[in-house]
């Protein structure tokens, strides 16, 4: 039942908002994964990031797409938790050390094991809209665990203008989404993180974005 709700939510509501209200300029669509397991690694500006990314992948993949999201934020009340877990389909990630000693990314590891497509924001949080933040190395942990899973860097611009942190009013702007070549684990954490960061920066360099301050 919630699977059907999730399907309708993404097939109708999200697509209408993304295609009609916002409008997407997608570059290198062919680099998007057509099956799992895979990790999408975009920069993070807005709550819309996840919704727009999911709507770019074919609907048949929807049951496989799982965004990783902060447990303390999205599970803070029952209604939001129901929506986040069942409709958006998040994998909750704890940002604080777990009492039971479980690894915070255990849910993500399991998802990749199942062959899911994981959306994982390496910046950790939305931060300042339209400003890239430093990457956290959790994603390297996943890549190391599953060296055969491709990590696909993505650069997104514009959604932070439409709906930045702390705002509830959506203002339409076209958003640009540039997909990079898949990366693989290279055997060393800091080298991998540097390559991912450089890949996202290179994608940003492909565009010509007006200033927004």
């Amino acid at each position: 039942m919630t699977g059907l709700l999730r399907y309708l939510f993404f097939a109708i509501l999200v697509r209408a908002v993304v295609l009609v209200l916002l409008g997407v300029n997608l570059r290198h669509r062919e680099r998007l994964p057509d099956r799992g397991p895979a990790i999408l690694a975009p920069n993070h500006n807005s709550h819309l990031d996840t919704l727009v990314l999911i709507s770019l992948l074919p609907l048949r993949l929807l049951p496989r797409i799982r965004p990783a999201a902060a447990l303390d934020y999205f599970l803070r009340n029952r209604l939001l938790a129901w929506f986040a877990l069942n409709i958006i389909g998040i994998i909750p990630v704890s940002r604080k050390p777990d009492k039971k000693g479980a690894h915070p990314l255990e849910g993500c590891v399991k998802a990749l094991e199942r062959g899911d497509i994981l959306i994982f924001f390496p910046e950790g949080s939305r931060g300042e809209p339209e400003r890239r933040a430093g990457l956290k190395s959790g994603i390297a942990h996943l890549a190391e665990h599953y060296p055969e899973v491709p990590v696909i860097p993505v650069f997104m611009h514009g959604l932070g203008k439409s709906l930045p942190k702390g705002e509830a009013l959506l203002v339409p702007f076209f958003c640009d989404i540039f997909v990079g070549e898949p990366l693989h684990w290279s055997g060393e954490r800091s080298g991998f993180m540097a390559r991912l960061e450089a890949a996202i920066a290179d994608l940003e360099g492909e565009g010509n974005f007006p200033s927004w301050h």
Binding site: G23, P129, G158, K161, P164, E167, L169, V171, P172, F173, F174, P210, S211, W212, H213
Partner: peptide
Amino acid sequence: KEYLSLIPTRRADRR
């Protein structure tokens, strides 16, 4: 929308 996405705008002017 295309015009406003193309030109520099100010964050303060969202509304």
